[in-house]
Design a binder for these strands. Structure first.
Lengths: 252, 252
DNA sequence: TAGTGGTCTAGACCACATT
DNA sequence: ATGTGGTCTAGACCACTAC
């Protein structure tokens, strides 16, 4: 049982529960509370931190959702083996590469508007023949070709993307700048052998293993915005995902 | 603007917010509220349903987290293009196969206790040399071999698994029966070419593309319970994941 | 029996989008 | 100016766990 010093600023625009969440997360990351230790009970915490119990609960719940804390009724709130950290932010390959320090480079091989064929229309949930923005890029990490990226976007969201922009930023970053915030995506991941064309583009042998990903993305307004059909050189790329299950056990 | 009939039962052990959630979900699924339509505001809903506003908010929030509803401050709560449904439950391949009607069959090729090597120990977050339960299975869909499944489990959770059980149930199902509820898993998915041994086991050509998945799972108590190292015949299997991003846009 | 988290209430004030 | 969701409060009662 350890007391955690939390300082809140009631003049800040940041919500109280968020301030507490951040401080608590830091305290756990710094080891001020160790794995397996219990927090004080919620009423005490509310007194210590001079906030109401629902506010305390909200902060704690957010950390429970990330797997940092575990609550058991009648027992208490415990810090978990934190090895497994929060779900990764929904990001593009470009962002991932830049975050890991590998210099990304992009060659835009095509950028145009076309009418959606049946497959694209179905994935994006629009009528067949609707105009969509088509995009094909080759992505490098340093000098190594890494992936062939094909994307289809609804025109309302793609707006005025230029080749220039796409060579210097990730697609998702550009979308965010235009007010499109990715919110939910479903990805289907598979593997295949490289075709002649793919082998040549990625500078690998024909038949070498490729990782394939097909992704449909919705934005914060619930619009289906993007279909991505991507092919990665499996020797240089893996996909990491986090799955959180809130069923199976009692609901929160 | 449509009024939704919600009937609640205050004698039920099911929480009110959950009852409302279920009814609301059904109403949306049945098309009683159509895509793009708005719910009444939260105060009105609280009056209509005879519950407090926080209870209404809780129900709505859960549906927002699943991407079924979208809230915008100053605007309202809107039903979303529901094509993209809730995150799939954290389940095993066996459960998946059975759910999709393909008859799963399992051959257990080994089940033993061994001391964890460095790799396993690191993944499970336990000291090297700790005893773990090792498990290797071959999974079939009908007559077709589909995957080679290797798992490593901490003994506290694996308990008294038997070959008999493993041939007739999925691993996760058995774990649930023993009180282990999967909660968070991180998966790294890649691809590789089939080795001699793998090709023979899966009855495919040497060098054929395989999908590989390495998964570490934590249970409801925050224990790191399982390491899975799986290899799938890419011709017959893909992995589907859902990614939800609650950052990027304003916090809820 | 005592202590914990889970649920629920009935208000209040604020920030934001729309008109 | 109005109406919406976002935040916060100060209580209350209950179900579950541990002793």
């Amino acid at each position: 049982m350890v007391s955690i010093q939390i300082s809140t600023d009631r003049t800040s625009p940041v919500p109280l529960h968020r301030q507490i969440y951040v401080e608590l997360e830091r305290a756990i990351a710094c080891g001020e509370i160790r794995k397996g230790e219990y927090l004080d009970n919620e009423l005490d915490l509310a007194l210590q931190w001079q906030v109401s119990r629902p506010t305390v609960r909200r902060s704690i719940q957010d950390l429970v959702d990330e797997g940092v804390l575990v609550r058991r009724r009648g027992v208490g709130t415990q810090v978990v083996n934190a090895q497994m950290r929060r779900p990764v932010r929904l990001s593009s390959l470009y962002d991932d590469l830049r975050a890991t320090g590998r210099a990304p480079r992009t060659a835009v091989s095509s950028l145009s508007r076309r009418k959606a064929d049946r497959d694209v229309a179905k994935s994006l949930g629009i009528p067949r023949g609707t105009e969509v923005v088509c995009l094909e890029r080759l992505r490098f990490a340093g000098r190594t070709p890494l992936a062939i990226l094909r994307n289809f976007l609804i025109v309302e969201a793609a707006g005025d993307l230029t080749q220039e922009q796409l060579q210097h930023s990730g697609l998702y970053e550009l979308l965010r700048e235009q007010g499109v915030f990715p919110r939910i995506a479903t990805q289907v991941i598979g593997a295949k052998a490289a075709s002649d064309h793919e082998a040549q583009a990625l500078d690998i042998a024909v038949g070498a293993p490729l990782l394939t990903m097909r992704r449909v993305m919705q934005d914060q307004l619930g619009r289906t915005v993007e279909l991505g059909v991507h092919t990665y050189d499996a020797a240089n790329y893996t996909v990491e995902t986090t799955v959180v299950d809130t069923f199976g056990t009692e609901p929160r």
